[in-house]
């Protein structure tokens, strides 16, 4: 009996340590989340305004004005997958990888060649175990300091691939931040921008714009900026979502650890009480025997 209480005590101590660890990780994630969320929220208005403006223009100009405005039949597609560099964040990585796999298999089934671009170590680890899947590029540690130049460079590469005919469309798969505890896995096409130009004919009666300088030149500046910024915004969203997911996961872990501690404590107290009772009975019956 005494042995049992000692074992329980040891287990309680170890669970307490775990709770302390997960509690600390939760606090760290909360602090990081606040920063990431601020950064994400502050660039959202720009992203939204840019999308609105470019949509307004794309509806009015002819798709020939910029090569990224017109789509073609999809024979080769690029999937850009944004996951995290670290684990311990619930289903955050698993969900986004699963969504990317669903998209990849769909394209595969339709007979399209798929090339993957991976951002985040967890995505890299998953596809390293699957060498049959074509990974074009892999980036690790892109989230430590989220940098617009990184997004612009990658967007430039993808755009060049589209212009050179190496890919017919680029899709982005990432976790979109909704609330601290909920992320939405989003699959969205970023190249070409035909979804924006798609409604061209519906608004035929829209007022024609004045352009200063000429429309083609303006689009040359706006379109690449839009592609880069979408990528950039997706990375910001993903990071905020990751910290949120980790915070929630660690909160759950801390809570389960606390539950476990109280149930183990109860068990230990019972065992100790049982031991005392047995000892008392032994003493009493020993005395009676005299």
């Amino acid at each position: 009996m005494a042995n049992n209480t000692r074992d329980l005590k040891r287990r309680i101590r170890s669970v307490k340590n775990t709770a302390q660890l997960t509690g600390a990780m939760k606090m760290v994630s909360a602090a990081k989340l606040r920063r990431a969320q601020e950064q994400m929220m502050s660039s959202r208005p720009y992203a939204a305004a840019l999308e609105r403006v470019i949509g307004d223009v794309a509806r009015r100009v002819s798709p020939e004005l910029h090569p990224l405005l017109s789509g073609r039949e999809l024979n080769t597609v690029d999937l850009v997958l944004i996951a995290g560099d670290k684990g311990l964040c619930g289903a955050f990585n698993a969900n986004v990888i699963k969504a990317a796999e669903v998209a990849r298999r769909e394209h595969d089934a339709a007979g399209r060649r798929v090339e993957m671009t991976l951002i985040g170590k967890k995505a890299g680890e998953y596809y390293r175990r699957r060498p049959e899947i074509l990974v074009r590029e892999f980036f690790a540690d892109a989230f430590r300091e989220i940098d617009y130049t990184f997004a612009a460079d990658l967007a430039g590469t993808l755009t060049d691939r589209f212009l050179a005919g190496e890919t017919d469309g680029v899709f982005l798969v990432y976790n979109r931040f909704r609330t601290t505890i909920s992320q939405i896995v989003t699959v969205t096409p970023i190249i070409p921008l035909q979804s924006l130009a798609g409604q061209a004919n519906e608004e035929k009666d829209a007022v024609e714009y004045l352009y200063e300088p000429a429309a083609a030149e303006l689009m040359r500046g706006l379109v690449p900026r839009f592609v880069s910024f979408q990528l950039y915004q997706a990375m910001l969203e993903s990071v905020a979502a990751e910290h949120g997911a980790r915070m929630a996961a660690m909160d759950n872990a801390t809570r389960s650890a606390e539950d476990m501690i109280s149930s183990l404590t109860l068990k230990m107290n019972r065992a100790r009480q049982a031991a005392i009772t047995t000892e008392l009975i032994e003493v009493v019956s020993g005395a009676e025997a005299l």
Partner: peptide
């Protein structure tokens, strides 16, 4: 400050896209 010179905008301005 437009790319091709400063300009003012008042309510009812014609639709315009400018650098």
């Amino acid at each position: 400050p437009g790319a091709e010179g400063s300009f003012g905008v008042r309510p009812g301005h014609a639709a315009l896209l400018a650098g």
